[in-house]
Design a protein around this nucleic acid. Structure first.
Lengths: 148, 148
DNA sequence: CATTTTACATAAGTATGTGATATAAAAAGC
DNA sequence: GCTTTTTATATCACATACTTATGTAAAATG
């Protein structure tokens, strides 16, 4: 399978999972961007605001606003960079981790119910692809670095 | 790996790919929900409005408005059901298919650039998981039918 | 030290979602 | 057959989370 064919098929499949993925959570609660941002912070540690915006595919003002909301909710913490007075370093708080864990538990429960209806072979294939999906999720869309 | 562990890991990985996935398209153009809805219509054929809403994880009013916008843009077509005067059957138009294909091409090109930076093993794992991802994408979040 | 660039904030507008409710057709009860 | 209830969609008012354009202050550049 060519890279181009893989990319096309993957774009299509992931795009179509979007609705299912959204239906895992009640409309109240964290937005997709908020959850993804918290996840990124949990996984990669403190991060600049602009880098977060690029990572999550939103504009810088959108990320400023999101971080303001998350900070007001106590889920993230903004700190000044001692070496550069312009930058804001954002990190996840304990409460942020706890919120994320609770959300993940609730969503995983629903997702498990859906996965149970897949064939065992499909479940095994998904399990085998987890490291690759994780690597894909960690890619920086702007970077040109090779091999995750 | 237990089903619960798979669900948790998958929820996390897919959630973190969200930002990358969004960054594949310019903010103008189809919204994620619009693209996913068109994809569903392309794949599954004509569909009731309420069924589409459930499928895409949005409320019925949201789907009514989305379909109105898509119909105004000529990407979908709403028809009355001859057998039931209440239902609206939505189908994708040729222009809808063309729009979707163009979008898919542009996004796949960007995604291919990102996939190229993954290890060959990871790419192979993703390719192997495509049928499973596709089956997952086709699951109805509300149904209880077994084995996709 | 003036100029440009970079990092973030603010403001105003827009798109897209929600909940509550209206309408009209079909199904159900009796 | 005529209410009553349910189902499918539409409409309305409002909330949220984006966008673009622009402002401000710190750092880098010449």
């Amino acid at each position: 399978m060519t890279d181009e064919a893989l990319a096309t098929a993957l774009e299509s499949a992931l795009g179509r999972t979007f609705g299912l993925f959204r239906s895992l959570s009640q409309p109240s609660g964290l937005s997709m961007t908020a959850a993804a941002t918290l996840s990124t912070l949990e996984r990669n540690g403190p991060c600049r605001l602009t880098a977060l915006a690029a990572r999550e595919g939103v504009t810088q003002p959108a990320m400023t606003q999101l971080i303001t909301r998350l900070a007001d909710a106590g889920l993230v913490c903004r700190e000044a960079d001692p070496a550069d007075g312009r930058v804001v370093r954002v990190s996840i708080t304990g409460e942020g981790r706890a919120t994320l864990a609770r959300r993940r538990g609730r969503r995983a429960e629903k997702l498990a119910g859906i996965l149970a209806r897949l064939s065992p072979g499909h479940r095994a294939a998904l399990a085998a692809a987890l490291p690759a999906l994780d690597a894909l999720a960690s890619m920086d869309p702007t970077s040109t670095k090779e091999y995750d």
